[in-house]
Design a protein around this nucleic acid. Sequence first.
DNA 1: CACCAGGCTGTCT
DNA 2: AGACAGCATGGT
Length: 271
Amino acid sequence: MGEMQVEAFSLALTMESGQFFRYRKDDAGYVLLTQRKVLRVSHQEDVLSYAGADERFVRTLFQLNEDYAAQLQRLLQDPVIAPLLRRYGGLHVMRQDLHETILGFICSSASNIPKIKMNLQLLAQYCGEAIDEHHHLPRNGIALDTELVVAAKTGYRAKFLIEANRLLTDEMLDEITGRDYAGAHALLCTLPGVGPKIADCVCLFALGHGEAFPVDVHILRAMKVLFPRRRFQNESQVRDFAQRRWRKDAGLAQQFIYQWARDDLRPGGRA
DNA sequence: CACCAGGCTGTCT
DNA sequence: AGACAGCATGGT
């Protein structure tokens, strides 16, 4: 149990922003399952209360000791996204477990957040280990049972999850971690079920490569609205543009844009 | 009951 | 290099 002062941080915005899937809301706050820990976190005013891990773990997971203020300051110079920063201030990019992030985003293809959370919970129940009633994701580098992965309702992604988990030995994870952004992205794309978009999610949310800019249908739609004169044709054009424009802050910018797209640009939302 | 979804893979031009 | 169907299945 512990408390720490936080500024420019919103636990709710960060948790609900589609980057982390292994959590549930509690009457007291959020319960996160990661790295075989059960982390309980709540946020009131400028105090973050936590239990289940030490302060250093929490600070790393939520990126509380990084140059967030400096990143915001730079992005505020961009008139196109400055309004989004004011609206969603406190939304952080997390630094998650590499293996868990890869499994999560393999599940994410052509899916939605509630379903991804369900898939991972079932995968943990069927293929992982339970510690004190809490089910954790299976370990990396092991063979998963096809029937069980299918039973987790992962659909056509089942074979990707099985093969990727087998390939993700400790050595492979170390190799991915040790590479720079371009190298990590390329190696991640060799995993079954991992293409450029998912590789960028992993680079951003697990490896801390701030220049990663995942482009899904929401981001593509939002970027066309934000930069109508660019006439973007496809995802790679958007990615190239964003990375040149925002450099190491591109990933954080993406997270603000994604949140805005989900709130205001979804069919049926307001323009 | 349609259409959509934090896409990727394989196959055609 | 670019277009595009097929993929399993729950969400809306």
